[in-house]
Design a binder for these strands. Structure first.
Lengths: 244, 244
DNA sequence: GATGACGTGTGGTCAGACCATAGTAGCCCC
DNA sequence: GGGGCTACTATGGTCTGACCACACGTCATC
């Protein structure tokens, strides 16, 4: 059975080939399901199964209606597919949360070092500073805080200039989002934690701004490890999330 | 439209919840499509779309027939889902091959250092040595060489003991497999390249065996960079693969 | 020019039919 | 009792057709 090619794979491999050759690219509208079914001589249901997979992988987004924004539009959203995959496999315990955090530390510290070593004009960090300023609002809703926090890490990652590492970082962060939210809901001293996080963020951005890669690395490592121990690993003996 | 929950997502979220809670785990057989459709009060087609996604993510594998091995069986194959996602997004040029190689270098050197620092009994590297011995066969088919090469890297990664990094490494490697194969088919001095690769592999394993993380890191970096320059980047001006 | 109605093509979902596959149970023979 | 064969059943895989909601574009009317 594994050796038999599924019908929907015809669509998948053709679309991958077209993406690769540049015949279709992000922003383009694919032919409709009925048209693709006719083109490949298969049923519309098989086309739909292929499109479902592409949708889950972040390659297309679909919407009904008519006009140029309808149907399957090619997009570039790798973090969608990757974070889903990570999430399922965390749930199966095949990818332990502890390993995810360790991987995040590796990637984030690399990103911090790289960002600290980049030449840049003074205005380039203004967007990041704006994020930190928004996060410094003491009355900020906890959920918004986390959204901004994620945006801060993405912004730092994009400074480093490696799209793959940025994507993996985002995906890993999103894959444990649910567990983190649950853990944060249980802590009694969220305000105290937020104060420390804000302080750590500023330290990280200062290190990058000051072109100090060693400080950036140390501070990012401390930041992630500290938050991990305060939330996902409060007690070494009582994991609140899938562990092997 | 994005705010409206798709019917198949009911199945997806329920299965993720069950995985997370341990109610189902790898090896288990899911209820049949018709049974799931009845359970959730939806059509079988919607169930199929959910199962397609899980299949693509490496969470289930499906086969027809009857008995305990039929239907959708839960598996743990994260590299399947991740490498597909990477591959599509390399094809869209959103994830440049150059960034993938840089990420591989970061992960492989980390793995090499970690493996070199692990305590182990002498027999633990025998499997890896066996791989290198197999690769040293001068008459080895090129395709088999690459299979063994990939196994070598996986074996080194598993020595380091981080399942997430190992999975990402495998996925990244697989995502550019096609481009590498095409590039290798074009080189005229494959035998010369293979001799160098064999030499590099032995050096890497020696460094790990000798508990020398610095040497392991240096040799892994050289190994990947050298191969990249000899194959995927022969001429800086003529990329043979999607680049931005 | 603005608004509303209509038509068309889109994806989303459902139901049903049929096929190939893989196991299991039952029956028959040695 | 064991082995082989057949029939049955449940499985996924694929196809067909129907219907719905949606979004746009066109045309007619004010």
């Amino acid at each position: 059975m594994a050796a038999t090619r599924r019908t929907y794979e015809i669509v998948l491999s053709n679309i991958e080939t077209d993406l690769r050759s540049g015949a279709i690219k992000p922003g383009d509208q694919l032919p409709g399901e009925r048209a693709l079914a006719q083109t490949y001589g298969i049923s519309r249901a098989s086309v739909r199964e292929a499109v479902r997979i592409l949708d889950a992988m972040g390659v297309v987004r679909t919407s009904s209606g008519s006009g140029p924004n309808s149907g399957a539009i090619v997009v570039s959203n790798p973090a969608a597919g990757l974070s889903s995959a990570f999430r399922y496999h965390v749930a199966t315990r095949h990818l332990p949360v502890r390993d995810i955090v360790e991987t995040r530390i590796l990637l984030e510290t690399w990103v911090g070092r790289a960002a600290a070593q980049q030449e840049r004009d003074g205005a380039e960090l203004d967007g990041v500073r704006g994020l930190l300023a928004a996060m410094d609002d003491p009355g900020l809703d906890q959920e918004i805080f986390h959204v901004l926090d994620a945006q801060f890490h993405v912004a730092v990652a994009s400074l480093a200039g490696n799209a793959v590492i940025e994507t993996i970082m985002v995906s890993l962060s999103q894959s444990i989002r649910g567990y983190v939210n649950e853990a944060v809901d249980k802590v009694v001293d969220w305000e105290e934690i937020a104060v420390t996080l804000r302080h750590q963020h500023h330290g990280i951005l200062d290190a990058i701004s000051d072109h100090d890669p060693d400080a950036a690395e140390v501070r990012l490592r401390e930041h992630i490890e500290w938050f991990y121990h305060r939330t996902l690993s409060p007690d070494p003996g009582t994991p609140a999330f899938p562990e092997k």
